[in-house]
Each structure stands twice: as structure tokens, then as C-alpha cells.
């Protein structure tokens, strides 16, 4: 029984279900009473985040590395980062409804990755568990993905607010969303932060690539650099006001969706291992 409770998937399931409860409760409150239960949502998110952290920690102990070796772990890390950012950004910048969107995002992707068993396939720990630079590179890169996820959420909030204002809708969640100006400034800051973290992650990865040329798969390199370049171009266009407003928001949402799909070619390029990581002992 004790071992079952310590099983990291139980923690991760608990986290995903708590996020789902928070999202459903938020949706119900918004649609029925037109009120946003901030305290309840943040409490559920904190408890869910604690389970999520424990689950990833357990998985890390078993894989002897930062758990980023298969799509399941990558998605869990991204959703964990997005909830972390909500807990930091939400109260600090008074980003109303960010919790609602973040818990919805974390619950949907988290449960999907838990349900599709083949995403949690075994993999070779290889350099991940040996070289701390690679660990740093991978965790920073995935952390930047988490920031891009939050950026996609705030961009969605921007699009909802903009649509509500243009269509002259005053009911529903539109009144509770942050202002157009606040969301726009937040999007700019998040993109700036994500590009810096992603650039640092890639720089760390490049050092390893130069030292050990054959180790990195070309497909992974191409997809990663394309994504980095795309976000860099978007940031430059945003800074010089060539890409603003709803176009900027749409690009952020589309680019993040596309970045999730790049995880598969990157993962496919990784050598697999005939062992379930959740059953592997350190």
C-alpha cells in the first residue's frame, strides 16, 4: 500500500484531477454565478502543484535525471511550469482568470498524456543522467516551453477579451479578464523571458553539440533551432511594432501549438530502451 501511494503516476493523476476540479469549478462559477472563485482556485492549484512536484520528483529519482525523456514527461514538465508561472504571475500581476485557463490547460494535456500509455515509453538515460550540462539544457528548454504555454494562454485571454469588446459583449468571463493593455504587456514580457531562457538553453546545448558532434540528432537540432528562430523573429517584430494586437496573439497561440508537435520528431530521434521508466530503480 505504501509503495502504491509513492508511485509517481498516482501523484501526477492526483494533480491532474485537482486541476480538472479547479477548472470545472471555475467554469461552473463563471457560467452560473458570474463570479470568479479566486481563493478556491488558487488553493486547488497549490495542492495540485504539490502533488505534481512530488510526482515529477519521484520520477526523477527513478530515472536518475531530470524526467524529460519521453512525451509524457515532457508534457508533465510543461504543464508543471505553466502552473508554477500562474502561481507566480497570477497574484503578482493580478492576472484574473489565468488560473482558470492554466488549470484547464494542465488538466487537459496532463490527463491526455496519462491516458496514452505509449507516450510514457522507456528510454535510454544515456547522457541525460551523466552530463549535468545536458540536464541543464533540457530542463531550461522545457521551462521555456512552459513559459511559451503561459504566453499562449495569456494570448488566448487577449483574443477572448478583444473579441468581447469588438462584438460588444459584456456578459460572461469578458468582464473578469484582465484589460487588453495589461494582457498585451504581459504577453510581451512573457515572450521576452521565454526567448531569453530558450536562448540560454540552446547555448548550453550547443556547447555539448560542438564537443560531441555525433551525439545530437539532426532532426532535433533542426526543429529546435527553427522554433527558437521563429520565437526570436516574433519578439523582434513585436519590439518594433510590426506584429501587434490580435495578430501577435494568434501567432503566439499557433507557434506554441506547433511547438508541441515538434516534440514527436524530437522524441522519435531518441534511442529507446526496453524498460518502463516508472518501474526503473535508481
Amino acid at each position: 500500500m505504501h509503495n502504491f501511494i509513492l508511485e509517481e503516476r498516482v501523484f501526477i493523476w492526483s494533480a491532474a484531477l485537482l486541476y480538472l476540479v479547479a477548472f470545472i469549478f471555475g467554469f461552473y462559477s463563471l457560467s452560473r454565478s458570474k463570479r470568479y472563485p479566486r481563493i478556491i482556485l488558487i488553493t486547488l492549484a497549490i495542492v495540485g502543484f504539490s502533488f505534481h512536484t512530488l510526482g515529477l520528483y519521484e520520477r526523477g529519482l527513478k530515472t536518475n535525471s531530470c524526467p524529460l525523456g519521453n512525451p509524457f514527461e515532457i508534457i508533465q514538465f510543461i504543464t508543471w511550469t505553466s502552473i508554477l508561472l500562474y502561481l507566480v504571475i497570477g497574484p503578482a500581476f493580478r492576472m484574473s482568470l489565468l488560473g482558470f485557463f492554466s488549470t484547464g490547460f494542465a488538466a487537459s494535456l496532463g490527463i491526455l498524456s496519462l491516458l496514452i500509455a505509449k507516450w510514457d515509453h522507456p528510454y535510454q538515460t544515456g547522457p541525460f543522467g551523466i552530463n549535468p550540462w545536458i540536464e541543464t539544457h533540457a530542463s531550461l528548454a522545457l521551462f521555456s516551453y512552459g513559459i511559451f504555454a503561459t504566453l499562449a494562454l495569456t494570448s488566448t485571454m487577449y483574443l477572448v477579451q478583444n473579441y468581447g469588446l469588438k462584438q460588444k459583449r459584456s456578459k460572461g468571463m469578458a468582464n473578469l479578464l484582465p484589460s487588453i493593455l495589461q494582457l498585451d504587456q504581459m504577453n510581451k514580457r512573457l515572450l521576452f523571458m521565454a526567448v531569453i531562457v530558450f536562448t540560454f538553453a540552446i547555448s548550453v546545448g550547443m556547447v555539448k553539440w560542438i564537443v560531441d558532434f555525433g551525439q545530437i540528432q539532426n532532426i532535433k537540432l533542426i526543429f529546435t533551432l527553427t522554433l527558437w528562430l521563429s520565437y526570436l523573429i516574433v519578439l523582434i517584430l513585436r519590439i518594433f511594432n510590426y506584429l501587434i494586437g490580435i495578430k501577435f496573439a494568434w501567432v503566439c497561440v499557433i507557434l506554441f501549438s506547433a511547438s508541441l508537435f515538434t516534440l514527436w520528431p524530437i522524441d522519435a530521434s531518441r534511442p529507446t530502451f526496453n524498460e518502463n521508466p516508472s518501474q526503473r530503480l535508481p
Binding site: L165, N175, L177, S179, I180, L181
Partner: peptide, 13 residues
Amino acid sequence: SVAVDLALRIFGN
């Protein structure tokens, strides 16, 4: 008051 609510949705402050 409606105009103020709308202005707050656009500018925040």
C-alpha cells in the same frame, strides 16, 4: 458607469 467599465476592460487603470 458602463463607459467606465468598458474603459477598464481596455486600459485596466
